[in-house]
């Protein structure tokens, strides 16, 4: 464990809690993409299959369970809880049909198995790495469509992006400080793609903080 990974994980947890807070406080799901949340749940469930096979640490297991459980709770609130359910606007959340996200990632994961040798857990794990890279896209598109971004929604995406950026620093740190650390280029590639998706958001977020005004995206 290093400081970048720890702070990254905590940013990730903070982002999920901020989204839950937004849903609870405003009783409103406008500006939130259900598709992104469902893709994230698929990412966590596929990646954390090792919860059943390998124990790393209490920290590791608790965080994995929290990510899965809290994301499932967000989805439940958006799908089933009144009045939040009525405020979710599916017509704005249309960018990516889930199957067009899942199918290419599954194909890529299968291809990766040809290179690495087949292992069921690795297949799901690689799939989750590819899927996570694009899971935020529907959310970013919803933001673009609404333009005016609520404070908590803005913070949610900021912390999520910070988590990804800190993981890049974590890999650099690990490669220098861990004897025999194996480079995992699939993870680096997906992680860099994913972080790059946030760059535009970070730019406008920073400008709005600097000016102290409302956060809105350009048309």
């Amino acid at each position: 464990m290093n400081i970048f990974r720890l702070v990254g994980d905590l940013c990730h947890l903070a982002s999920i809690l901020l989204l839950l807070l937004k849903l609870r406080a405003s009783k409103n799901a406008s500006g939130i993409s259900l598709k992104t949340q469902e893709l994230f749940l698929a990412v966590f469930v596929c990646r954390y299959l090792d919860l059943f096979t390998t124990f790393y640490s209490v920290y590791n297991s608790v965080m994995k369970v929290l990510y899965i459980a809290l994301t499932a709770l967000i989805i439940h609130m958006m799908r089933a809880q009144s009045p939040i359910r009525g405020t979710y606007d599916a017509s704005q959340d249309t960018f990516l049909h889930v199957k067009y996200a899942v199918a290419p990632c599954a194909a890529l994961a299968a291809l990766t198995m040809l290179v690495q040798g087949f292992d069921v857990r690795d297949l799901f794990w690689n799939f989750s790495i590819y899927l996570e890279a694009i899971a935020i896209v529907p959310q970013l598109i919803v933001l673009q469509r609404y333009r005016e971004v609520e404070n908590l929604t803005g913070h949610y995406i900021f912390f999520l992006g910070a988590y990804r950026a800190l993981y890049i620093l974590n890999w650099i740190y690990r490669s220098f400080h861990e004897r025999g650390y194996k480079h995992h280029y699939v993870v680096y590639f997906a992680g860099i793609v994913q972080t790059a998706l946030y760059v535009d958001f970070f730019y406008y977020y920073a400008i709005s903080k600097y000016r102290g005004g409302k956060f809105s995206l350009p048309s």
């Binding site: 990974r5 994980d9 990730h12 090792d50 390998t54 790393y56 640490s57 590791n60 965080m63 994995k64 990510y67 690495q116 040798g117 087949f118 292992d119 857990r121 690795d122 794990w125 690689n126 993981y167 974590n170 690990r174 194996k182 995992h184 993870v187």
Partner: peptide, 10 residues
């Protein structure tokens, strides 16, 4: 696991 994937990461 065959790939040495960093499963300890989240």
């Amino acid at each position: 696991s065959s790939s040495d994937a960093p499963h300890d990461e989240l």
